[in-house]
Structure formats: C-alpha cells, structure tokens
Simulated assay, not measured.
Amino acid sequence: METKELGHTGVKISAIALGGMPMSLSSRPPESESIKVIHRALDLGVTLIDTADSYCKDESDKHHNEGLISKALSSYSGDKSNVLVATKGGLMRPNGSWTRNGNPDHLRETIRISFEALGGKPIDVWQYHPPDTDYTIEASLKPAKEAVEQGTIRFVGVSNFSVEQIKRARDVVEIVSVQNQYNPWNRQPEEDGVLEYCEKEQLTFLPWSPLGGSRRVGKLEDIDAIAQLAQEKSVSVYNIVLAWLRAKSPAIVPIPGASKVSSIEDSVRAVDVNLSDEEVAKINRATAS
C-alpha cells in the first residue's frame, strides 16, 4: 500500500483510509461483518481508520463506532503497530438527527469517553467536527489542546472548516488534518481555497463522503466521463472517483466508507489507478457545477 505523511508529523498513513460511519448507523451490518471489514482493510495495508463519537444510531448509542473499531483492533492477529484511528467530537445525535455542540465542557467529556472507547490509549487524531457558532473556535479547541498536553491526544484535526477558521484553530493548537466534504457533486474545497491552503501548509486533506454518500453513490454510473473511464480501465466507477480525488492534490487521502468486505477491497484498488491530466480534466468538466 502506498503511504503518505500525516500533515508534517513524520507519521505515515495509507493512501486510502477506511471510513467507519456505515458500520454504526441505523442500517449497520451485524458486528461480526463489520469486524471482518476492518480486519480485511488492515490485511490490505490500510493504516488509517476514520470514526467519530457520533457515528451511532442516536445519543443512547454514542461512541458505538469507536468501540467497534477498538474491538476489531484488539482481535486482529496481524501487525497493527502502524494503525491510526482518527475520531471526531462536536456532533450530537438526538433521536438520530445531527446537531452541533461545541461546548468546551461537552468536548472535554467526550474526549475522555472517546479515549476510553478506543481502548484507553492516546487518541491518534482527534478532530473538532463542525464549528459551533455558539462558541468561539478558540474556546472549543481548548479541551483538545489540554488533552494534547496531558498525552490523551497525539494529533488534532478539524472538519468542515474554512481557511479562516483553520488559521484560527492553528493559533490554538497544532493542526495536522482537515476533513471537508469533497466529491463529484461537491467541489467546494477547490473553490474556497481550503484544498490549496492544505497543500501549501502540508496539512492532510481527508475528503468525507468521497463517493457522494449513500444517496448519490449509485448515480456515479450516470456521469458519462466516469463510467467511460471505468469501462476503459476495467475498474469500478468508485475506483475512478477515488483516483480522480487523489490526482487533485498530493494532500488528499480519501476515506471511503465500507460496510462490506467487497467494498473496502474495491476501494483499495484505486491506489493502482492512474489518471492522465486529460482524464482528470474530462471528469472536471463533467462534474462542474
């Protein structure tokens, strides 16, 4: 598996990561199947798994995905010394909905619970999920800074942040990654300067929902440029999209979700798919807003 540096930490991560969210929402598969997915990802060389305290059915089920990943890692018989888990805090799940909570007291507590859910070892990467306008970025990130100083968190990232917000976050604590939505239907990181900023500042950019999410992933076949390239190269349309994202910037590490072994097996194949500048431009034109 190809690797990339996480930010400018000197720590290497796989060029394709695993998104854990589909394994913990209401439509999640049996736990045994999810553990097989995680184990297969590790077998294939995936060394970054992305999760969040809010990847669950509702508030009563909070931290489900973190616990699942911890269980899968503890039962894995292979080498897991280089595996990093990146979790997030800042979203609540009342009755299965999504709401923001940047209250420093809440974030301090959820960091503690995430630490325990992930096995009581330092959280590799903790990401402040979305900025909550009820609290300043400085106040919301103070608990993360404290946790870094205490050794509970190794590295800090942010999610759904603008360039200005990233800069403010970096004034509080060192930031190694940015996780914003980026896919054929949402190319905002190209337009708002976030992707360019990450590349310039050596921050890892983690595109969430890289294949469009459950509502749009099935529509990738309808984008002729993607479908034609997939046919020409004898790969899936998902491979083409992941290869397209990787070609957009060396800062990018896609985190496709998976709830089936076949899904992560297919996603990893994207590492071997190379697109020419002309092919990338073809997809750009086909997905321009």
Results as ranks from 00 to 15, higher is better:
96 G>R: 00
173 V>P: 09
81 S>C: 07
180 N>K: 01
34 S>K: 06
174 E>W: 03
200 K>H: 14
4 K>Y: 04
83 V>H: 12
203 L>K: 01
271 V>I: 15
20 G>L: 01
268 V>A: 02
33 E>D: 14
260 K>C: 02
2 E>H: 09
100 R>N: 12
99 T>I: 09
52 A>E: 02
151 G>V: 03
97 S>W: 14
145 K>V: 07
129 H>L: 04
150 Q>W: 06
194 V>M: 08
255 I>H: 02
164 E>W: 07
170 R>P: 03
38 I>L: 13
51 T>I: 04
135 Y>W: 15
228 Q>I: 14
197 Y>M: 05
56 C>P: 06
61 D>K: 09
61 D>E: 11
109 E>A: 15
50 D>P: 00
226 I>V: 14
32 S>K: 11
279 E>W: 04
233 K>C: 01
60 S>R: 14
237 V>I: 08
199 E>K: 14
92 M>H: 10
287 T>E: 10
74 S>M: 12
28 R>M: 03
79 D>Q: 09
73 L>I: 07
205 F>V: 00
32 S>L: 06
40 R>T: 09
212 G>A: 03
245 L>I: 02
81 S>F: 08
150 Q>L: 11
256 P>Y: 00
182 Y>K: 02
186 N>V: 08
116 E>P: 07
93 R>W: 04
240 I>T: 07
279 E>L: 03
131 P>T: 00
265 E>C: 00
78 G>I: 01
210 P>W: 07
63 H>T: 11
154 R>L: 08
115 F>D: 07
201 E>I: 01
23 M>S: 03
258 A>P: 07
157 G>T: 04
17 A>L: 08
251 A>Y: 09
54 S>E: 13
30 P>A: 06
91 L>V: 10
103 N>G: 10
47 T>L: 00
286 A>W: 05
128 Y>V: 04
196 E>G: 08
187 R>P: 11
7 G>V: 00
188 Q>H: 13
250 P>C: 06
92 M>R: 15
49 I>G: 07
23 M>R: 02
